[in-house]
Simulated assay, not measured.
Amino acid sequence: MPPKGHIVKPIPPGTPPAKEDFARALRALRELIDDTLNGIAATIYSNSSNLSRWLSAEAVPKDADPVERLHALASDHASKRGLPVSTSLPELRALHQRARPSSRTASCSNCHVTGSTPSPVLPGAVAGSSPSSQEGVKATRLPGKPAYSHYGRSHRRASVRRFRATSDRLSASAAQNVAPVPLGKGDRRNAEKPEVVWTGLNEVQAYFTSGRDHDALALLQSAGFSMPVRDVPGAVEACRAVGLDHAAEAMLLRAGQRDLNAVLYLARVFNQDRRHTDAEVLLRAATRATTR
């Protein structure tokens, strides 16, 4: 049974059947997990607000990734408690697909055309005129409006480029501040540490391999900000161990925006482990966050 004080809101009457069926399937999975909403949300790389809205049929996740992670988490808890899982993963995927809102037909207030995307009206042209009659009109972008129809995709690609440039700059700056004594050469020896394993590493690697950099960035930022603070050093170390320095630094940049106690805890852990580069990137990100 879920911990007390974390009762999900009831499904409102009049909810579409597809959304209600999907929400009830999620609620059944949530009943199998002996954890709070915050704990579950951190494990599936989401937040408690979104998770609560999914469980009460107020919203449906756009991607199936958090749904599949929730199913895996519920299956793990159910196997430990000897309980059956009422909904299989293929059935949950089908429910999610049916619950997602159908694509809306485009509508233009100028030409009153629905069912297809209307041709854009250039500034200064008459609404409803043909494209040929709009030739010669200088296209100017209105303030705050994107220049292209695929703004979302261009924005995500620009975000990936900015995060890589920022991580390269911070990494180069941090590399100048090295420990005065090389590791293993001082009078203190580090004890052998067990291999660090982060459950999200395989998913990040799969995103990078398939060219889905923006998905990898979103997962890393969510992990750096939402996962339990004690797990952040291990996740960063796991990324660096396989050569994903960009991924480790993206997580650190987001972890630097957490509350002061979390940042101080991470900085202390990094310094104790002589991971001065990680501490430098973290503190620089925290400084930038406080000066905004």
Rank of each mutant, 00 (worst) to 15 (best):
H6C: 08
I7M: 10
P12Y: 03
P13N: 10
G14D: 03
P17W: 04
F22Q: 07
R30Y: 11
E31W: 07
I33K: 06
L37H: 00
G39M: 09
R53V: 06
R53G: 00
R53I: 02
A57N: 06
A57S: 14
K62Y: 06
A64G: 01
S75K: 14
A78V: 14
K80R: 15
P84K: 07
L95V: 09
Q97T: 08
P101I: 05
S102F: 02
S109C: 05
C111L: 12
G115F: 03
G124F: 12
V126R: 09
A127Q: 10
S129Y: 10
S130F: 12
G136Q: 08
V137D: 01
K138E: 14
R141E: 14
Y151N: 07
R153K: 11
S154L: 03
S159Y: 06
V160N: 06
R162C: 01
F163W: 10
T166C: 05
S167N: 07
L170C: 04
A179P: 04
G184F: 00
G184H: 06
G184S: 02
E192A: 10
E195S: 05
T199Y: 00
N202S: 08
D213L: 06
L217S: 11
L220C: 09
S222Q: 13
A223Y: 11
P228R: 04
P233N: 01
V236M: 07
R240K: 15
R240Q: 12
A248I: 02
A262I: 03
A267P: 09
Q272P: 02
R284C: 07
A285E: 11
A286Y: 05
